[in-house]
Simulated assay, not measured.
Amino acid sequence: MILITKNKEPKEWTEYRNTPGVDYQAIPELVQSLLKEQGYICAYCMRRIPTKDKIYKKDGVNFVYTNEDHRVEHIKSREKHDDLKLDYTNMVVCCPGHIGAQDHCDRLKGPKDISFSPIDKQFIETIRYSSNGEISSTNDVYNNEMKDVLNLNTELLRRNRFLMLTEVISQINSTCKKGKNWDKRTLELFLKKYSEKHSEKDEEGTKEKYYPYCGIIIWYLQKKLRTLD
């Protein structure tokens, strides 16, 4: 995960939630605002969104696509916190939540609550990664919720983070002169690249996006830089 910096809510959402008697509904302007501020990656697993997930049938060969390409997630669930159901600061956007054979992220979380938030810098600072791409927290409560409530270490999620890290390490090795150790300037350049949004053109135009799974890269490079101080 990476720290999500919340922007001002879109005026269309302000108008909607101030309508007397209105209930929660993910209007398009709300969804687009969340996608934009998150750089089009899932708030929890950091996959690229919007995307469609495959749900395999019992034969393990045939599949159907999920009927959604994103999910608006209430960090504090609507079911238990009616007073927060229209609160923009309580909302993030997630992937459809079914990569491979397991549910994860909001699809698994459902009406349950978690005690941490991806908009909380102190929580993000507890995040750690192992060499095989597994995500964890130094806080036992957070760690258990990441595992049991969000299921962030499915085989494919862990593997995708590992492959992302492996690719970036290869890029750094190619950038550094042959036989030379990694230098601070090179690591800072790569940290800047993966910490910031980049312009990417798709069928809907040019968008500012984070690299998928960038959290593991940011953590790894920050750790390496501390050894050079």
Rank of each mutant, 00 (worst) to 15 (best):
K6Y: 07
E9H: 08
K11A: 05
W13N: 01
E15A: 14
Y16M: 06
Y16K: 09
P20L: 09
A26D: 10
E29R: 11
V31N: 02
L35G: 02
E37N: 02
G39D: 10
I49G: 03
P50F: 10
T51S: 07
I55L: 08
I55S: 10
Y56M: 06
Y56I: 09
D59P: 00
D59K: 11
G60D: 04
F63V: 05
V64C: 06
H70C: 02
H74D: 05
I75Q: 02
R78M: 09
H81T: 04
D82R: 13
D83S: 12
L84D: 08
K85F: 00
L86M: 15
M91Y: 10
V92K: 03
C95S: 03
C95R: 04
G100I: 00
G100T: 03
Q102V: 05
K109S: 03
D113V: 05
D113Q: 11
D120M: 05
F123W: 13
E125I: 00
E125G: 03
Y129Q: 09
D140L: 12
D140G: 01
N143K: 10
V149E: 12
N151Y: 11
E155W: 07
L163S: 08
L163P: 00
S170T: 12
I172H: 07
S174M: 13
C176L: 05
K177H: 09
G179Q: 09
R185Y: 12
R185W: 03
L187D: 06
K197V: 10
H198Y: 15
H198S: 14
S199G: 08
E204L: 13
Y211H: 12
G215H: 04
I217V: 15
D229T: 13
